[in-house]
Design a protein around this nucleic acid. Structure first.
Length: 423
RNA sequence: GGAGAGGUGACCGAGUAGGCCGAAGGUGCUCGCCUGCUAAGCGAGUGUACGGCUAAAACCGUACCCAGGGUUCAAAUCCCUGCCUCUCCGCCA
C-alpha cells in the first residue's frame, strides 16, 4: 500500500507511477471515496462525542434522582443516527481499502522506464559462457539420461509440473539448500528461520499477493489458508503488527522453504524440465531495514545472492527491471540471470527487490525512532537462490563429454565427498 | 477428538453486582537530581490508530482491555461466534 497522504495531496505522482508501469487505476474515484470517508468520520465522531457526554451526565444524575425520560429518548435517537452513519462509513471504508490494496508500488527514480522485459538493463556480468567440445544438453535430457530427474513418474503421482528427484539428483538438491543456508548464515550475517509453509489471508495481504493474485495461489479446501508461493510471505510477516526498536534494525533472515504456485498464466510455457514447477525449493533472503539505507541494503542483498553463483563458478548477469516488468509490490528489482548452455539462454534464478514501505504499511511493520516517532520499516527480499533452477544450472554447466556431471568444489563437502556422477 | 481454565498496556498484574477505567500497582525504559563505588535513593514522564487544528508541535475529538457481532442511554466488565494459550484425558509422526 502506498501512503494515503500522497494519494490525497500529490496524486499526480501516483498517476505518473501507474503510467510508467503501464497500469490503470481510477484515481479520481479513490480520491472521491477518501473525501467522503473523512466527511463521514467527522460527522459520526461529532455525534459520538455528544452521545458520550450525555451518557456521562445520566450516570451522574442517576445517583441523585430519576433520569428524565426525554434524555433517554434523545440518546436513543442519537444512537440510531450514529448507526446509520457508521453503516455508510463502513461501506465507504471497505471500498477505500479495496481500492488502495490494488495500487502497485511507486517505482524508484533509478528504475528504467519501459514496457516489456526487453527494456530491462543489464547492469552486471560475471564470468563468461563456458566452451564445450560437444553439444551441451538441456538439463532434462541429462537428468532423465542419468535417471536422477523423473518427470514421468512425478506426473503419475501428481500431475504435470512436478518432479521426482532421485539419487544424485535428490542429493544435489539437498546439498544446494544446505550450502546456501550455511553461506548466508556464516558469511553474510543472516539468521536462519524455518517458517510455516501455510499462511492465512492476512499474511498474504501483508506482502501483496492478495487480493490481486489469488488465482496464482493454492488455497486449502474449507480454510482461509494458502500454501506459500515464496518464503517472503511467512518471513516478512514475522514482524507484522509490531513496532521494532531502531537499534534492532536491520534484521536479516534466511529461510529455506518449498514454494507452491499455480502458474495459472503460464499454460504451455516452460513445460520441459525444472524451469517452471508447481512445487519448488528456494532459499530466500529477507531484510527489514531503516528507510534511509534500504537501497544500500538492496545492493548488499544482491551481492549476497550473487555470491552463491560465484562460489559455484557459474556465469550470470544481473538485470535491473524496467517499470513495465516490475512486480506489483516492488519499488526496484534486480534479477540475476544464470547462463544455461544446454538451452542457450539466460534464465532468472533470483529476484532481489526493495519494497520500501509498501509491504510494511500493509503488514503494519513499524519501528520507533530515537526521537520517539514511529515509522514504517523498509522490507526487502531476494532469492538466494531458487534451488531447482540452480540444479538446472549445475547440470548444464558441469556436464562432461562422457555424459557425467562433475560436482562444483564448494558442494563436494555437502555431497558425501562425491566429485563426479556417475563415478 | 473429549473435559476444564484463561486471553488487560514493553513485561508482570489489579479491575467482573455495567457508568467516576485508556485503564490501579509493580517492573522495565527515558529525562532530571542525588550519591561516589561496581548498587541504591528521589522526582517527572512513558500505548496505538484515525480525524480535526497546526509551518510543526502542543492541543481537541473518536476508537481500541484477543477478533467480530449483540444487549444497554452507557461494557474491559453481560450474551453469542471465532481465533489463540494453558491443564487433564484420548490419539498420533
Amino acid at each position: 500500500m502506498i501512503d494515503p497522504k500522497i494519494i490525497r495531496e500529490k496524486k499526480e505522482i501516483v498517476i505518473e507511477a501507474l503510467n510508467k508501469r503501464g497500469a490503470s487505476f481510477d484515481m479520481e474515484r479513490l480520491v472521491a471515496v477518501d473525501e467522503e470517508r473523512r466527511v463521514l468520520i467527522q460527522e459520526s465522531e461529532k455525534m459520538k462525542q455528544e452521545k458520550n457526554e450525555l451518557s456521562d451526565e445520566i450516570g451522574r444524575i442517576r445517583k441523585s434522582g430519576p433520569i428524565p425520560k426525554e434524555k433517554i429518548d434523545h440518546l436513543k435517537e442519537l444512537g440510531t443516527k450514529i448507526d446509520e452513519l457508521e453503516r455508510r462509513l463502513k461501506e465507504v471504508e471497505r471500498e477505500w481499502e479495496e481500492m488502495s490494496l490494488l495500487i502497485p508500488n511507486i517505482p524508484d527514480k533509478t528504475v528504467p522506464i519501459g514496457t516489456t522485459e526487453e527494456e530491462n538493463k543489464v547492469v552486471k556480468v560475471w564470468g563468461e559462457k563456458p566452451d564445450f567440445s560437444f553439444e551441451p544438453k538441456p538439463h532434462w535430457e541429462i537428468g532423465e539420461g542419468l535417471d536422477i530427474l523423473d518427470f514421468k513418474r512425478a506426473a503419475k503421482i501428481t500431475g504435470s509440473r512436478f518432479t521426482l528427484y532421485k539419487s544424485f539428483g535428490a542429493l544435489l538438491e539437498r546439498a544446494l539448500i544446505n550450502f546456501m543456508l550455511d553461506l548466508h548464515t556464516e558469511e553474510h550475517g543472516y539468521t536462519e528461520v524455518l517458517p510455516p509453509f501455510i499462511v492465512n489471508r492476512d499474511s498474504m495481504t501483508g506482502t501483496g499477493q492478495l487480493p490481486k493474485f489469488e488465482e496464482e495461489l493454492f488455497k486449502l479446501e474449507g480454510l482461509d489458508y494458502f500454501l506459500i508461493p515464496t518464503a517472503e510471505v511467512p518471513v516478512t510477516n514475522i514482524f507484522s503488527n509490531e513496532i521494532l526498536k531502531e537499534e534492532e534494525l536491520p534484521v536479516r533472515f534466511v529461510a529455506y522453504t518449498p514454494c507452491f504456485r499455480k502458474e495459472a498464466g503460464a499454460h504451455g510455457k516452460d513445460t520441459r524440465g525444472l524451469t517452471r514447477q508447481h512445487q519448488f525449493n528456494k532459499v530466500e533472503l529477507v531484510k527489514f531495514a531503516l528507510p534511509e539505507n534500504s537501497y544500500e541494503e538492496l545492493e548488499g542483498l544482491l551481492l549476497d545472492a550473487e555470491d552463491v553463483l560465484k562460489k559455484l563458478g557459474i556465469h550470470y548477469r544481473v538485470s535491473l527491471l524496467c517499470t513495465g516488468d516490475l512486480g506489483f509490490s516492488s519499488a526496484k528489482t534486480y534479477d540475476i540471470e544464470v547462463w544455461l548452455p544446454g538451452q542457450n539462454v539466460y534464465r532468472e534464478i533470483s529476484s532481489c527487490s526493495n519494497f520500501e514501505s509498501f509491504q510494511a504499511r500493509r503488514a503494519k511493520i513499524r519501528y520507533r525512532k530515537g526521537n520517539g516517532k514511529i515509522e514504517f520499516v523498509h522490507t526487502l527480499n531476494g532469492s538466494g537462490l531458487a534451488i531447482g533452477r540452480t540444479v538446472m544450472a549445475v547440470l548444464e554447466n558441469y556436464q562432461q563429454a562422457d555424459g557425467s556431471i562433475t560436482v562444483p568444489d564448494v558442494l563436494i563437502p555437502y555431497m558425501r565427498g562425491i566429485k563426479r556422477f556417475p563415478l
